[in-house]
């Protein structure tokens, strides 16, 4: 295998196989004195800790259901992990399981997009290995097939080149999988640059009426303001907002004539030097799910925020 970023899929059947497969990957790293971070759900963290025994003290763990609730926050987490080791001679490896059977259909699609974008985010950076476990017992075959398309390597005791990988160019292509139609009852607003305060008030009112707390309602209003700002500045000067609720979630979608072509938009920490990218970054960190789509004739960003 070549140097650089190694993104491997681990297909396993049930918890025991999970522990065996990820455990040997982690031990391999510890034996080579590498820094290891494992991002899986709470229950699996405990299983892996038990399996590793004393060695678990040398491994960092993060709860995927917290840090990866919105899968678009996971690449920034791995970026911080890699950046924190910059200049160190130690190797790096990670285990990340963003996809399990509890993900909603919408979240599942975004998790798959996340897996695909990991290749784009790290392909030209330092060497490290990331193992992504997939439970073939609980996940449908279509999810496993997509997992194979998104990983250049698979692991079966050792890493192997995966011929089913879609390739970097395809990973970075604009994401145009159609979104489910909003309900006919969705409220529509035309974005007007001089009436953004009214738009925010309207969004917050709608969100609170559907059970979101004041803080979440204000978060959603800010996110919609940011999306509207993007429409005004980059989306042809105008946009349309659709607002509805779906069970415990309030959903807002901004449509405009712009196309977000940077595949990593919203996944790169903005800074003092950057001139943009703040809006989608905030959306990803304030919302539970963000769906970015670039179609031939325009784009859409749909954000979801759920009641606690």
């Amino acid at each position: 295998m070549t140097a650089g970023f190694r993104h491997e899929a681990l297909l396993y059947e049930g918890n025991e196989a999970f522990v065996r497969g990820t455990g040997s990957f982690v031990r391999e790293g510890l034996d080579a004195d590498e820094t290891v971070l494992v991002v899986v759900d709470r229950a699996k963290i405990e299983m892996l800790r038990d399996h590793l025994g004393d060695d678990a003290r040398h491994v960092s763990f993060e709860d995927m259901s917290a840090v990866g609730r919105n899968p678009a926050r996971i690449i920034p987490l791995w970026r911080r992990f890699v950046a924190a080791q910059a200049g160190s001679r130690k190797g790096l490896r990670g285990v990340g399981e963003p996809i399990d059977a509890r993900r909603s259909p919408d979240a599942l699609v975004e998790c798959e997009r996340h897996e695909s974008l990991l290749n784009v985010a790290f392909h030209d950076g330092p060497s490290w290995s990331l193992l992504c476990p997939y439970d073939t017992r609980s996940l449908p075959a279509s999810v496993i097939e997509e997992a194979l398309r998104n990983h250049p390597c698979t692991r079966n005791g050792r890493p192997e080149v995966n011929p089913a990988f879609r390739g970097l160019e395809s990973c970075a292509a604009p994401f145009d999988i159609p979104l489910a139609e909003p309900p006919p009852s969705a409220t529509r607003f035309v974005v007007d640059r001089d009436r953004l305060a009214e738009l925010r008030a309207e969004v917050a009112r709608h969100a609170e009426a559907h059970g979101l707390g004041g803080r979440e309602a204000d978060d959603l209003a800010l996110v919609v303001h940011e999306l509207a700002t993007n429409s005004i500045r980059h989306g042809g000067g105008a946009g349309e907002l659709l607002l509805w609720s779906d069970g415990p979630r309030v959903v807002a979608e901004m449509r405009d004539r712009g196309r977000i072509v940077d595949p990593l938009a919203g996944r790169v920490q903005p800074g003092l030097e950057t001139t943009g990218g703040y809006g989608l970054w905030l959306a990803n960190h304030l919302c539970d799910l963000v769906q970015i789509r670039a179609y031939r004739d325009g784009g859409a960003v749909r954000v979801h925020l759920a009641r606690d």
């Binding site: 305060a197 303001h225 940011e226 700002t229 903005p270 003092l272 950057t274 703040y278 809006g279 970054w281």
Partner: peptide
């Protein structure tokens, strides 16, 4: 009462 990301960024740059 309200500040957006562009406002925060301008503030950060001016304060730098």
């Amino acid at each position: 009462s309200f500040v957006d990301a562009a406002g925060m960024s301008a503030l950060a740059k001016a304060l730098t």
